[in-house]
Design a protein around this nucleic acid. Structure first.
Lengths: 215, 215
DNA sequence: TGTACATCAGTGAACGCGCGTTCACTGATGTAC
DNA sequence: TGTACATCAGTGAACGCGCGTTCACTGATGTAC
């Protein structure tokens, strides 16, 4: 009875309120960074008093955890939709880039500076795995790469993390390099490390994407 | 009279105390992240009372700024020393990697999540420029690369940031890709995004380094 | 349709806390004659 | 070498602040008969 569809008005309201709180939280993060997120400030902006938030989230940490979960889900959804629309490796890359540019602080919430103590919730690693699987699939549809690097050889015996057992190691390598190279450009761009150099980061991104063809 | 050498005992003591404070600050950052840095906590650990720190730093922000400056200087020194010891591109890469692994939070203080409001002090961009120049020099010593990519062409007309006007655009491109690719692997490794995959990040790093030969 | 009760969103006061920072001060160290 | 003064490191009390969180409560909304 409780498990599917048919929400009561109260449940609707509750969900809507929860979404509004998160929305405010995201705006605050975009403005001042995640570490400056304040429950009281959110409450004020939403138009209710501080303690009321505890109807929706058990604590500040739980709110942040939920935001991280949402960020992962959003990225996963974005890439899945791209794939379902027939996107190839390049399509996934641009979907990633657009997603990152749309909200840099959301990107950094996943891929930015780790907080020493904190450990991300388990569902996020599931989404990470799904993303990796999508990348591997995309690279599987490509003409195979010739040269075998030391890392390729290493991967032959360290590939338990990859769901698909039949795919060649060079394909796994492609997926990993997709991740690291595009993250390299993206994170430096989003952090503003290219301001001062007048080149267009988009072109660098495209070039890095193309570099994945040979490796 | 004031400008060079010959420090008085007071100046010595002062410099030593300042260094000790910074040292404690770094330990705190390594433990709990930069955003959790607390003046009072530092004071307690150094063995003096809170307000005493204001003899050495005008404010918390100035302390952090100074730490960022030191991080940049440390990285610059490390790479310069490597170069002066005759390191080539690969040597610089491993010097970078070692430096990053020695203190991940120091790395993230430079290359991690940006704080929306904050702007790094000017001297840091000088060091960034110096680092870029060293990379360009290192890539100049290599056999030239054949294929010209769109980004190469773009760089021909957007290279004012590069001090050396005589070097080909593909060389500049090499230096930029060095930066982005190695940062991509390093930052994901340091942030722990490879835990759960059993491969050795060092081998991936080497492979990414080798990938720079063709591009 | 109307009444009695349960659920639950939101309030306001209060908690303790640690923060950065200021201020007037003490006391030791250095400098000048 | 000894005295008089200036410099400056460090203290302790106090400031106001905003934080996350708890608690007992009010009042509206939903549910059962």
């Amino acid at each position: 009875m409780t498990e599917t569809g048919a929400k009561s008005p109260r449940e609707r309201y509750r969900a809507q309120m929860q979404a509004e709180i998160k929305q405010c939280a995201w705006e605050q993060i975009a403005t001042a960074g995640a570490s400056a997120l304040s429950l009281n400030a959110i409450a004020k902006q939403v138009g209710m008093s501080g303690p009321a938030l505890y109807r929706y989230f058990a604590s500040r940490d739980e709110l942040i955890t939920e935001l991280i979960r949402d960020a992962y889900r959003s990225l996963g959804d974005t890439l899945r939709e791209a794939r379902d629309s027939g996107a190839d490796v390049a399509g996934l890359a641009y979907a990633l880039r657009d997603w990152a540019l749309a909200d840099p602080q959301r990107y950094f919430l996943i891929y930015g500076t780790p907080v020493p103590g904190y450990h991300a919730p388990d569902d996020t690693t599931e989404i990470s795995n799904e993303i990796m699987t999508m990348l591997i699939e995309a690279f599987s549809a490509r003409p195979p790469v010739k040269p075998t690097t030391p890392f390729d050889a290493h991967l032959e015996h360290h590939r338990r993390w990859a769901a698909d057992h039949s795919v060649p190691a060079t394909t796994l390598h492609g997926a990993v390099s997709f991740w690291t190279r595009l993250h390299g450009v993206l994170s430096l761009e989003l952090a503003g490390h290219f301001t001062g150099m007048e080149f267009d980061p988009a072109l660098l991104f495209s070039d890095e994407l193309n570099s994945l063809e040979t490796h």
